[in-house]
């Protein structure tokens, strides 16, 4: 079965989406990534979508789901490399991806992940975040 590879780098997971995903492939990625976060006790997930030519509501929902699931599993997700035309279309479609952190490229995305996983939680009320 076709799968999108998930790379492990220290406590972070890296995913580069380079194919025009059909819906099942997107669902598989969501499941694989969520399992990998728990298995490797990952603190962060970086998803590079610079090769994606469109993000429709299905893929948008998958990205939002991954961000939400990773947060529950005590990891942060950063989406990087969205093409400007994709961003324009996504907003016009009606999806602004609330709750999904973004960065312009892989480098600044990694910086953001480091900052997020090292600093104490600023927004969460439970106070249980590890430093």
């Amino acid at each position: 079965m076709e799968r999108i590879p998930i790379l492990r780098m220290g406590s972070f997971l890296l995913v580069t989406i380079q194919v025009d995903m059909h819906d099942q492939l997107a669902m598989t990625l969501q499941d694989d990534l969520t399992s990998a976060i728990a298995k490797f006790e990952a603190r962060g997930v970086l998803i590079d979508i610079s090769s994606l030519e469109i993000v429709d509501s299905f893929i948008g929902r998958m990205l939002a789901n991954i961000a939400a699931m990773s947060r529950i599993l005590d990891a942060h997700t950063v989406l990087v490399g969205m093409q400007p035309a994709v961003a324009i279309t996504l907003v016009e479609l009606g999806m602004s991806l609330p709750g999904v952190r973004t960065a312009l490229n892989v480098e600044s995305g990694m910086e953001l992940l480091h900052a997020l996983s090292e600093s104490p939680e600023e927004t969460e009320a439970d106070g249980a975040a590890e430093n």
Binding site: V55, A85, L93
Partner: peptide, 17 residues
């Protein structure tokens, strides 16, 4: 334009689904 292409292809994806 690239933006228009992206919009048309995205709409295609939604409607085909």
């Amino acid at each position: 334009s690239l933006v228009d292409q992206t919009k048309i292809v995205t709409a295609t994806s939604e409607l085909a689904r």
